[in-house]
Design a protein around this nucleic acid. Structure first.
Lengths: 334, 334
DNA sequence: AGACAAATTGACAACGTTGTTTATTCAAAT
DNA sequence: ATTTGAATAAACAACGTTGTCAATTTGTCT
């Protein structure tokens, strides 16, 4: 590999002067600058970041540790967001492992420290509480799409409550009155928050005594989880006769579409449907297209890096949890 | 940060002896080794990889550059596979950017070189030819899920032809005879290969003059691509009366299910359905569940790193394209 | 021309490691 | 008791860079 000294020799100056040019030090004669830049170009010189880091003692590296990929691959967007923001701030994101089943989180943290990462973003694949090992205290840390059960760590999470509140309000404003909610399993954080947002919205329209909430469209049989959306939806429609159904995720809406098709209920006409996730192409491939609340993964990824860099620089030291707004993608289903 | 010298002081030995312990050099008295390990533990020493790298001149870093995320987020699995394999081989994968719309591929490559990455994996989000800028010649390179149009670069791609051949053969073996193929746009590499595999399988059963291939289930209207799967499927069923339909991707199968539902054709009974992608939960949420050929993203990710490390070490210098087998996930739809 | 300040450059140390060479310790062999 | 040789440890240089400070060059003013 080409070093700064080789460039210096080629340009006929001391290697220190080359260093100055590389670091945009203004105290270099224009004539020399031109010569040096030419030499850099000719030799294809690239500064050795490792050597620079040893000397300067800052790495500009941020570690990104994430737990296992789950059923929501859209959450790679967290990574995209983090990456983009890191780039903007002149940092390199080191993604240490995406599926650390074998290497434990602490192992990954060790790697981060060996690379002298200035801080760590810990991302989860769905919104949940995560109790991190004590080792994570040793450097600036931001949790994204997850949070410390004791609120002792900076966290960026989606505002599920606002999301449910907003979409419910929009349904109500369009005149829907009997809204059923096929919610996710109540053990899921998002499910609890959304229920709360849902109920708040209903209360504002004073119809909080006339709703129908289903907790979980899954059943565990012999240790295996099976989807029972269709049965549940069938029952809800028969018993409650809703004029709109809010689904916990797009896949639930998908199953619901089949049920409605069979019952000859036209979505967006006889019955309104809304959902959460706005998952890639599903909402658009459905007919009529599905209105769904997108989870702000990309924004959260960006926010996590911004927050971490502020933490590192001491500009912002609060450990408060930051909620990121969710946006409804309005389509034809209501 | 704790340095090797601080550890040495604590243990009462020269810093070089600590270095020996860290690097598992056997020529250290047991007594000292114990003392040093204790000191390392107490101080929480982590070797500085940057300093080590400067001295040893090898980085154990592999760059991973990928183009924009497309409609197949499952392809993160390429990254997972690469990461896992890198870990096994004691390498660190530096994911330089997932969505380099702003920074060009060459910029990312510069970053790789500044980090002294020993080689680069270039991944595409769907199987396609990619003409990389000449700068990519400057270090070992493996392309994954894409390939050089002139075959001048090592590449790992899915064996789409085998995939289509296999699934078609299985359909035929189960007694299906009139198979329609709702293929993807013929501009897509996978579409061409799959068509070829499909036809080869039919030929083996001597029914290659009685099939029905649809090229593309999309239409471009005023610059926007719209999905016309439902119309197309309707027409195919009416005109060709197939006993089985092979779909280009799970989302096509999804739309097809709606069409069949409306026509009261029972999937897996009146008509067989198969598809490509095996995309996350879609095949399982459908009723009856969809048999789909999975693309071997994870395996390809692993293979790409294995191949790259072999290239770097000179163990394997061939630039041949490596095809990775696709596996059918057999379910209830045929 | 000479003096002086400003601009520019270079010599050298330092960062935290590892490779190489040299010194020390200690036990076994004479 | 001395020599030998192996085992162990230390000293020092080196990696490619940047920080510090002294040295040199250049330009301006008298």
């Amino acid at each position: 590999m080409v070093t700064i000294k080789q460039v210096a020799k080629r340009a006929g100056v001391s290697f220190k002067t080359v260093s100055r040019v590389v670091n945009n030090d203004p105290t270099v004669k224009e004539e020399n600058r031109v010569k040096i830049l030419a030499a850099i170009e000719e030799l294809g010189y690239q500064p050795n970041l490792a050597a620079r880091m040893v000397r300067k003692k800052n790495s500009d590296v941020i570690g990104f540790i994430s737990d296992e990929i789950s059923t929501t691959p859209a959450s790679v967007d967290i990574l995209r967001g983090a990456q983009d923001r890191a780039w903007e701030l002149g940092k390199t994101l080191m993604v240490f492992n995406i599926d650390p089943k074998k290497p434990s989180a602490s192992n990954l943290l060790e790697q981060c420290r060996q690379h002298r990462a200035e801080g760590v973003v810990y991302g989860a694949m769905y919104h949940q509480p995560v109790k991190l090992p004590v080792q994570f205290d040793q450097q600036p840390l931001v949790m994204v799409n997850c949070f410390d059960p004791n609120q002792q760590r900076a966290a960026i999470i989606p505002d599920d409550e606002q999301a449910a509140y907003d979409v419910t309000l929009q349904l109500l404003n369009k005149g829907y009155k009997r809204i059923a909610f096929l919610n996710l399993n109540p053990k899921i954080v998002a499910a609890k928050l959304r229920l709360s947002g849902f109920l708040t919205a209903l209360k504002e329209f004073s119809i909080d005594d006339d709703q129908y909430v289903v907790e979980s469209v899954e059943k565990v049989v012999e240790g295996r989880t099976i989807d029972i959306t269709r049965e549940v939806a069938d029952r809800v429609i028969t018993e409650f006769k809703p004029d709109a159904i809010l689904c916990g995720k797009d896949l639930v809406a998908l199953s619901l579409y089949f049920v409605l098709e069979r019952r000859d209920l036209r979505v967006g006409h006889d019955i309104g449907v809304a959902s959460f996730d706005d998952w890639d192409c599903i909402p658009q491939i459905l007919v009529p297209s599905l209105s769904s609340v997108a989870l702000p993964y990309y924004q959260m990824g960006r926010a996590s890096v911004t927050r971490l860099v502020n933490l590192i620089s001491g500009k912002q030291t609060s450990l408060a949890t930051e909620r990121v707004k969710c946006q409804l993608s309005s389509r034809e289903s209501f």
